[in-house]
């Protein structure tokens, strides 16, 4: 452990009820930069962590509507204004015929927005996250829950963090270091 950069403090919990209790304890202690890691979404954890509901629907609806309006404009530009063709004796601006593609492009742009938002806010694309270096975290994607206090939080210091997690009912409380410091644990992971 030479000049190891401390990234945070991890503690494990094995039951969802205990996780809720631990999350409430950390929330009430006033931590801001911390997170719970779970193998599947746990109901009621957002409240216990003091998180607001996801804002995704507003972004998705907004971009979806833009996509729909865009589809109407593109179709009108191409078939009514740039190269007008009479089809079946209909009006030039026969908008009902444009509805299917308006709908499809609404869905398509909304779909891309969801996927993009998951990269921006939903935890996709975090290949280089320091948590991946901790062997402890491997249990999270199987059947255990972790509470992680980030070292960037203003309240964070090693002693307090450890005490808080233990008080919150976590076991295996460990400091989180970057990979090259944890020689012992990283050796076990590879062949």
């Amino acid at each position: 452990m030479h000049n190891s950069k401390l990234k945070g403090m991890v503690g494990m919990v094995s039951k969802p009820d205990a996780l809720i209790k631990a999350a409430e304890t950390v929330r009430d202690a006033g931590y801001k930069k911390w997170d719970c890691h779970t193998p599947y979404p746990v109901h009621g954890l957002d409240d216990a962590m003091g998180l607001k509901e996801s804002f995704l629907p507003f972004i998705v609806l907004g971009v979806g509507l833009l996509g729909g309006v865009g589809a109407l404009l593109v179709q009108t530009y191409m078939n009514v204004w740039d190269y007008p063709v009479i089809i079946g004796g209909k009006d030039m601006f026969s908008w009902p015929a444009f509805v299917p593609i308006i709908f499809e492009l609404f869905v398509l742009s909304a779909g891309f927005t969801i996927f993009g938002c998951l990269f921006a806010f939903g935890g996709f694309g975090k290949w280089a996250h320091p948590l991946h270096d901790a062997d402890l975290m491997k249990r999270v994607t199987c059947d255990e829950f972790a509470v992680v206090l980030d070292a960037k939080d203003e309240m964070f210091n090693e002693e307090n963090a450890k005490g808080l997690l233990e008080r919150a009912g976590c076991f295996d409380v460990q400091p989180l270091h970057e990979k090259n410091e944890c020689t012992e644990s990283s050796a076990g992971g590879d062949e």
Binding site: D35, L56, F103, E104, G123, F124, H132, T141
Partner: peptide, 27 residues
């Protein structure tokens, strides 16, 4: 995609999944 089961991620993920389902249904 570097998924680490973060609940701050799950919060959006679950909503996103629901929205996908909501979009895929009329689709």
């Amino acid at each position: 995609l570097g998924w680490n089961g973060s609940n701050r991620g799950w919060r959006h993920y679950e909503k996103g999944y629901l929205l996908f389902a909501g979009l895929a249904t009329p689709l």
